[in-house]
């Protein structure tokens, strides 16, 4: 079954700019998909619609059986518990340690302490940071901070991991480390990953599915695609 389905989706912002025109998409469970395109192509808008920071103006967005457009503000948490999100700027809490940052995601949804401990340590092991549990984010490198953010995103075993330019602030070497982490999450946990990026090298090396957007239109949806202008 498809985890994500978009039907005739259009997104028009209040300032009159249309970011997405008539988009139809279906993404299968367990897939690894890149969303590529230049600035203003609508890739960020697409990601934002998937976790309902933005609502589509027309059409239907269904994520894991939930109709995102119809989701009330009060019920958004139901969607967010099914997915993890990673941003370009990590968004960690500086006053909390690595462990506490990851545990925070579970404490917020009222998980038990001993379960939190097991899940957090597992997630940190998956991203290769088990030896930095008690460090503060500011003492870590950018790549490490992003890995903490990934651990926080996957700690609740989501079906879907959304990444909005996760390597945007990192050098090529660190970026590849992140990609390896994401690939192993995709393989070992079976998590569906959707990643918006404009890093050609990564897309070409990984050989995954690629959605190409241009000026709000879907140009191509290819299996094992590359970044072609």
């Amino acid at each position: 079954m498809d985890l994500i389905r978009l039907k005739n989706v259009e997104k028009k912002y209040k300032n009159g700019v249309t970011a997405i025109y008539d988009l139809n998409l279906a993404i299968e469970k367990g897939s690894f998909v890149f969303v590529i395109g230049g600035s203003g192509s609508g890739k960020s808008t697409l990601i934002k619609m998937l976790y309902r920071e933005e609502k589509p103006t027309k059409g239907q967005v269904v994520v894991g059986g939930l109709d995102v457009a119809k989701l009330k503000n009060k019920k958004v948490y139901k969607l967010r518990r099914k997915l993890g999100i990673v941003f370009q700027d990590y968004r960690l809490l500086p006053k909390l340690t690595v462990y506490e940052n990851v545990a925070f995601a579970l404490e917020c949804i009222g998980e038990k302490k001993d379960i939190i401990r097991i899940k957090v340590l597992k997630a940190l092991e998956d991203v290769g940071l088990k030896n930095k549990v008690h460090e503060y984010p500011n003492n870590l490198s950018g790549g490490e901070q992003q890995r903490v953010a990934i651990a926080r995103a996957i700690v609740n075993d989501p079906k879907l991991l959304l990444c909005d330019e996760p390597t945007g602030n990192l050098d090529p070497e660190k970026s590849m480390e992140i990609m390896k982490v994401l690939e192993s999450i995709n393989k070992q946990r079976g998590t569906t990953i959707i990643m918006a990026t404009h890093d050609k090298e990564i897309v070409n090396k990984m050989k995954k599915q690629v959605i190409t957007l241009k000026d709000g239109h879907l140009v191509k949806f290819k299996q094992k695609g590359t970044y072609a202008e």
Binding site: N73, K74, Y77, R80, K82, I85, R91, L93, I109
Partner: peptide
């Protein structure tokens, strides 16, 4: 602010 933002993102309900 940032804490609230993250809470929303990781699926904390509004009342929490």
């Amino acid at each position: 602010k940032r804490e609230i933002e993250i809470m929303r993102l990781v699926g904390a309900s509004n009342i929490t």
